[in-house]
Design a protein around this nucleic acid. Sequence first.
RNA 1: GCCUGCGUAGCUCAGUAGGUAGAGCACUUCGUUGGUAACGAAGAGGUCACCGGUUCAAUCCCGGUCGUAGGCUCCA
Length: 646
Amino acid sequence: MSEISINIKGIGEHTFSPGITPLEIKNQIKGIQKNSIICKVDGDLIDLSSKISKSCEIQFLDAQSKEGHSVLLHSTAHLMAQAVKRLFPKTKVTIGPYLENRFYYDFDVETPFTEDDLVKIEDEMLKISSEDLEIIHEVKSREEAIKYFDKIDENYKVEIINDLDKDEILKTYSQGEFTDLCRGPHVHSTGEIKHFKLLSSSAAYWRGDEKNQTLQRVYGTSFQNPKDLKKYLNQLEEQKKRDHRKIGKELDLFFFDDEVGPGLPLWTPSGTVLIDQLEALAKEKETAGGYLRVRTPHLTKGDLFSKSGHLDHYMSSMFSPMDVDGIDYYMKPMNCPYHHKIFANTPKSYRDLPYRISEYGTCYRYEKSGELFGLMRVRSMQMNDGHIYCTAEQFKEEFINVCNLYMEYFKIFGIDKYEMRLSLHDPKGLGDKFINNPKLWKKTEDDVRNALKGAKLKFVESVGDAAFYGPKIDVQVWSSIGREFTLATNQVDFAIPERFDLTYTDKDGSAKTPLCIHRAPLGTHERFIGFLIEHFGGNFPLWLAPKQVTILPVSDKFNDYAEEIKKDLMSKGIRISLDNRSEKIGSKIRDAEMQKINIMVIVGEKEVENKTLTIRRRFIKEQKELSLDDFSNEILSEINERRVSN
RNA sequence: GCCUGCGUAGCUCAGUAGGUAGAGCACUUCGUUGGUAACGAAGAGGUCACCGGUUCAAUCCCGGUCGUAGGCUCCA
């Protein structure tokens, strides 16, 4: 057989006998990075032990590359599974994929893992690593694979194989006594996996279905380099410090009370400042965008929600009804039905469209107890809600304007890590989860997709995440501990206008049905503020900060001067406090820093004499001396511009 | 809702082979009047989440409830 030519990326062409493996190439050819753990042949990731039969291009990768790292993570999941099987032989393995910087493996075990168990598993993993077991892959026929996994009593694996496509190539990976069904590829020996850490264990359902068996999921992380592992673990610690639940407590922004109920936040004066600022921002932008503001009740007769479809499609997220004079009343889970009522209250002409109305309407949703999460997931929420009623011709522009509005907001806050997601219906849920009208779904989804493409907005698509009444654009963000949330949303509703018999009189005098766009560019106060707390780590920009300025007299002797300054700044609308305790200046500064107050105004003998203030900004030691007027002018313009720096 | 862990002063946390509890910070008072991240002293504070059970005795052991954490599922 003739030789084959392999172009090694970064090295050059070499000839080999067919059947050569990347591992052999790595050992033979000088200059290939020693820490390569996997390779790509003509763009496909393959095991280092795979045989190469024809000329190709090969690229060796270490775990610094995203693909290399994901292989390492995946292989670490297998290593963990092997350790678990050694320690708890009755365990049945299921699946163990990699995520970004993490992996997990789901196990069916008799008793859930304790923290001690995780330590034991980790120790066993280190042991297997030092055994340096070769990881061998084999292609198996369907029958062979089923027979094998059946024999070793791994029924989940058998179930997986039975569900795979008939022409799927089945592979097993073996390391020592442990064999797993897997697509691979994997690193070539357990000795390659050295620097890992198990992070947590929790429950998960088999195949993500709550009707199925509860499995134990163990999360972990793994790196090639101990420094990278340390860095990642530090990063996780740092992220925990930004957790809005922690900062919310430290800065006294909001809290939950057992006697009030879970998921029902109480906003303190400081937290309420954040709400007020957001609301002022929304009001300003919406007024400029042609919205009219409205107000609607929190409680309503069931008939309205029956008409809107909520009782059919949304009941599981609604609080149980209360009986009022023999009639069922519900807390509102959304504001839309009221806005439709307002639209319909007076006759509309084509001249009234687009008709845009908005409010910060408080909604109440029954979220299952285990789903509650700080401010990010609550049961009472103040929604930056609004509805646009427009003609088909106006739709595209209106829809994109909403997208632009939330981009504008994001710019104000400096939010740049988000993902726009076009959420589509899942045909399987029609009639139950979604309104049953396949044609309208298709048309509306196409319209939205085209509008987005026309505006050159980047987005991903997600099937099954639509609202029950129409497709939507969700803006996804991540909390500091990595959970994903929808921050803003922009939704189309093709069903409601008809259900509510909403019409307008067109130019020709005929009655037409408008399109309806639901939108919540700032989401809800709860989630948006929860997100902002983490985004800023509690260090709010001046315009948003609950405590903008504090005056720190050097000693009691200057309290009167401080009081004058306080009065002046307060009259200008600045959120100001005065620390007149008999404490040393250093102590007052420390307390102000801990409270993350933006600006400290220090006054002592010098300032009283000069009629000035000494200004010290949060985290900045350098100070400057200013007159009261110069100072207030300076910060007022910073506030009015909603500047984000510091 | 499901699985597991956790619940001690306003906050962060000690503690008890079962004999009703302690620190630091914060708070109040007194002294100190101090120039850039903690001045000193004293005082006040708790049905040890709640309800039952076992026990002479429960904060501790057992059961239940509620809350909470990590996930799963679900969502703004």
